[in-house]
Amino acid sequence: MKMMYSCQEVPEIASDYLEGRLSWSEWAMLKMHLAMCPPCRDYVEQLGLTVEALEALDEPPSPEVSRDLMAIYHHWTTEQDS
């Protein structure tokens, strides 16, 4: 039975680890590896930081776009009333 991951395997499962999608045994094997391997800890941490940076990218539409879409809404409410 497999007891631990190699460093080469860690990047392949790092995203699933961040997603909480590993089985208990996979999770335990990875945690054991990370406890002993600073480079793999760095890798997994950097992937997590990448995901956090992506989450911070979201922005609402520009005022111009919002105005145009609001015109569609007004058009529709008028249509409803008539």
């Binding site: 190699s6 460093c7 080469q8 395997e9 480079p39 793999c40 760095d42 890798y43 950097q46 930081l49 990448t50 956090e52 940076a53 911070a56």
Partner: peptide
């Protein structure tokens, strides 16, 4: 399966945001 070229540490990653 060990690292030949391990990932270098990131400096001040808070800059990402």
């Amino acid at each position: 399966g060990g690292w030949n070229s391990p990932p270098a540490a990131w400096h001040d990653p808070a800059r990402l945001t």
